[in-house]
Amino acid sequence: MTLRRRLSDVLYVRPLLLLSLLLIPPLLWLGIIYLGSLFNLMLYSFYSLNDFTGQVEYRFSLSAFQQLFSSSANVDIVVRTTLMALVVTLACIAIGFPIAYYIAFYTKGNARTFWYLMVLLPLWSSYLIKVYAWRLILAGEGVVSWFFNLLGLGWLLQGILSVPVVGGPSLSNSYLGMFLVFTYIWLPYMILPIITALERVPKSLIQASSDLGARPGQTFRKIIWPLVIPGVAAGSIFTFSLTLGDYIIPQVVGQPGFFIGQMVYVQQGTAGNLPLAAAFSVVPVVIIAIYLLIVRRMGAFNAL
């Protein structure tokens, strides 16, 4: 009792001590386990693999990056993954923004809880189950093509699938299908930060804009959108980086062509080429960094 009392007294008069006690464990975790591993990973990308022994040589070398960028197949993988991440992000913004707008501005009380639940519910079930479910939905004999046939629109689906690059033998074996699954899986990560950003826009700003003669479209472009960009940027960092790093969806749905995540998986596992795997995993980090710089240059964080 007295010990507890004395402890509380000490912590009360020394808030810094309390703060450090609270912060040291997570900082150790972040600092050593997370940042340490990341640093180690980047370090490995600058080592090389001895082709004869199959052992990693711990000397500085750019051979992993050279190997990555000298092969057009590898460059294809980077371009393919980045394009997919970009398109998925744009689609998530296009679909997510109206939903977030509706939830933030037109619902309250129980209705808002319901909509939050609807957005979050997909995250409660296993990622793998959702991906495999989508494979069945999109399969050649799946419910989507059945539905198209039912409406007599089977020819339309065939037409879409015959488009080069995006198409394929069936939706579950095409980039279009992969795009649909990525967009579905990451959508909540886009909607939630946008809702938060919209909720932080004071209603009086919207009224002031209208009061000063702005029509609703102008108010949206000049007031709401600039204030919500940080939320869109946060959401797009989620969707962009999650797509860049994912290695399950490209394996289950889509074309045989590899994505960055799969290359990392294969290189560090089957092929045992840790430096090349590390070099591949540095690519998304660099792309995200560039993406953040562009977003910042566009003024996304001015309102923060």
Binding site: S204, L205, A208, S210, I223
Partner: peptide
């Protein structure tokens, strides 16, 4: 926006 009226809001509502 169609009224010839302007408002000074209680919280100022500056952008």
């Amino acid at each position: 926006y169609a009224r010839d009226v302007n408002t000074v809001f209680q919280d100022y509502a500056l952008f």
